[in-house]
Amino acid sequence: MSRLLHSLYLIVLFIVIIFTILLLISPEPVMAFEDFVTGPFSNIYNTGNLFAIAAILIICGTGVSISFQAGLFNLGGEAQIYSSALVGTLVGLALPEGSGFFGILVVIIISMITGAAIATISGFLRYRYHIHELISSFLLSGGLLSLTDFLISNTFRDSKSFLQTTSKLPESFYLPSILPPSNLTITILIACTVACILWFWLYKMAGGYEMRVFGLNKDFAEFGNISSRRYTILPLMINGACFGLAGALMILSTQHAAIVGFSAGYGWNGIVIALIAANNPIMTIPAAFLLAWVETGTRTAMAGSSVSLEMSEVIRGMILLMITLRFFKNRRSRS
């Protein structure tokens, strides 16, 4: 019951925030609000895109939940998505044209390994040299982002394209789509599966239990003979692998090539999702839909009135602030 009340409270709060912002920035707030709410569901194209965005957000959010549960802050999501997507794309381009399912699998795995490797560096540094992973992951990410930008726009640039992009992957690498005119592919299924698996691991298996204990109280974990090395490195590795997966899926389902800045913002959004979901992988699914709705809603409202794209940024920040500040009491007792 309290849980239901909690989510109800969250939704009311959320609507109030959006309406207040619209009231402040739009000359006709009621119309903009209507566009905002109904826009994403007005046609198949918008709805499909909402699902497609949500799918990626679920994966990012789930990954971040894992590292948050272990008490680790991974701020390098941006580059873990972007750089690993580039590596995956390059490997995909090197494979024979009709690789099909096998090719898709290789791209996904390579991207996951790359993402995991990048994140693991921060975990290793945290464990061995006591360098705060919050700082190290951000710095590494900052460096890698510009390196990736450079590689896409110079070294691996497709000279025939007007965009700053690599060559396109052959069509056998495209994931099967679900709602044709939109960007939605089977990513949403993959995303829900990943969330479920990680939820199961986190709450039903010994490893997940140990990791949560480690996250809650490091001294107690040590007392219980829980390896602090494993649970400093593993959560970040899983988190990085999730970001890598998200990057690969974006390439395979919508972009089909690594374009400069194509994944910007998803790393931060992953953090927002994890926090809305209270670090529970299953709860990232509704949280991701909420945020995807804000994104597509802002876009449709933008078409109709003077709402600008920054609104989704502001709403996102507000949600994050409200949630962490715990303006509602139920959360306090649970954590």
Partner: peptide
Amino acid sequence: TMRFKGNIFITGLAMNLLIPGVITL
């Protein structure tokens, strides 16, 4: 953050996300 017993790292991140958006608006 302290009044509501939030995590200062996370509200700090929220500020980082919020401020550029508000400025642009």
